[in-house]
């Protein structure tokens, strides 16, 4: 439970959303999506933190011995973060491939000019 991590991650999320909402270049919009993802990932990985804990790598026999001195951080958020990093990478890859094809098609990647479907 690190407060500074939570504050920074919320700031990153808002920064990313601001970027998506106001920047005209498509690549900058994709970057904004990426920043939102990083902010959320930072938040998830800080959720499981226990101050003074060690890395959660144990053998089952160590844990079931009943020794009370094992104090480790929560492994579940770390698994969630790994999955989320992969998903974020895939989203950015797909979005960037869209941008490439849009540039080939329209010779511009400005959001104000690519708005053929409206109304």
């Amino acid at each position: 439970m690190i407060i500074i991590n939570f504050v920074v991650s919320v700031l990153l999320i808002f920064l990313g959303l601001y970027c998506v909402c106001t920047r005209k270049n498509f690549i900058k919009i994709v970057m904004g999506l990426g920043i939102v993802d990083y902010g959320v990932n930072l938040f998830i990985v800080s959720v499981g933190f226990n101050d003074g804990g060690t890395a959660p790598i144990y053998a089952l026999s160590d844990l079931t011995n009943g020794a009370a001195s094992h104090f480790f951080v929560d492994p579940v958020p770390q698994a969630l973060t790994l999955t989320s990093i992969v998903i974020g990478a895939c989203v950015q890859a797909m979005a960037l491939s869209f941008v490439i094809m849009l540039y080939k098609r329209y010779q511009t990647i400005n959001a104000d000019e690519i708005r053929g479907l409206h109304g």
């Binding site: 939102v36 989203v91 849009l102």
Partner: peptide, 21 residues
């Protein structure tokens, strides 16, 4: 078509990031 797919991806991605949060 490309424009529609990109918009879907951006908005959908914002939504799912909020779900994850």
């Amino acid at each position: 078509a490309l424009e529609a797919g990109f918009k879907y991806l951006v908005i959908g991605s914002v939504g799912s990031s909020m779900i994850l949060f």
